[in-house]
Design a protein around this nucleic acid. Structure first.
Lengths: 137, 137
DNA sequence: TATTAATTCTACCTAAAGGTAGTAATTTAA
DNA sequence: TTAAATTACTACCTTTAGGTAGAATTAATA
């Protein structure tokens, strides 16, 4: 019951870029070292973030990454979606197909409240919100 | 962001046994067919449930499984723990080691509320609670 | 223009989750 | 006492997540 490794990395990467990008472009090398993410795995994730247009890349010497849009416009949920890690509306805690009010699994009712809270949290939290200083990276 | 397959199966199995066990012992064959869980995988899970003393088994012809203790005494969280799928107190949403009030990840504060709700849900829900009729199995 | 520091691409490797196969052991009942 | 129905055990297979390697491409600058 937790986020997968890749989406954890992705959120931390975007959050760090949002925090630092006014100072300079962020290279894969810097991101890898500071965030303690294996370099080659990080570049793989960066490629996905570029293709999804969350970040844009500048190639060549002195290149690096920056956010494509305003950090306020990217939600945590957007990122989780890219890595198939978002909580879908029809998600059933016990994995028995689609749960709804008519036909529910044994934990449907109790699960609704935390599920909605989490969905809301992910949807309302922007990369900007979580990039504020003063927290671990 | 969801329970792993094995713990979903385990909860459904225990819940079904709790619902039916007064009628007869439940064989792996019946459980597999009704719950739509691959037979060989199910027997593997049953072995763990037996070793963890959630259920006891009767071998030989006409054998099967029944709960070892009162279904009220087994919580969903107990089951999740067996399959390393419970949410630990120190669990950090972004996977940066231990998060606490002194040294937090960027989502620590917002994550606390849903996390506590889920922990409470898992800890307070007994197998008996979720075995009541009228829901999908 | 050559060097260097960067991203990108393709392909592969490893570990863990999920699932399968075959056989041994146990018990009941015909 | 033997056949059938059951759980238990050991070993393996498959898929996916996580991670690595190496070479190609790009662009700044000396």
């Amino acid at each position: 019951m937790q986020l997968n490794n890749t989406s954890q990395y992705a959120i931390r990467i975007l959050s760090y870029i949002a925090r630092k990008q006014d100072e300079h472009l962020l290279s894969a090398n810097e991101l890898s070292k500071i965030l303690n993410i294996p370099y080659k795995f990080l570049t793989k994730i960066m490629t996905k973030l570029v293709k999804a247009e969350f970040v844009e890349s500048v190639r060549g010497r002195d290149g690096g990454f920056r956010l494509k849009d305003d950090a306020q416009k990217i939600s945590v949920d957007d990122v989780l979606n890219l890595f198939n890690d978002s909580i879908k509306d029809e998600q059933c805690l016990l994995g028995i197909g689609a749960c709804d009010t008519q036909c529910k699994c044994a934990m449907h009712d109790q699960w609704m409240k935390p599920k909605l809270l989490i969905q809301k949290l992910f949807r309302k939290s922007s990369i900007k919100d979580i990039s504020k200083k003063g927290s671990k990276i």
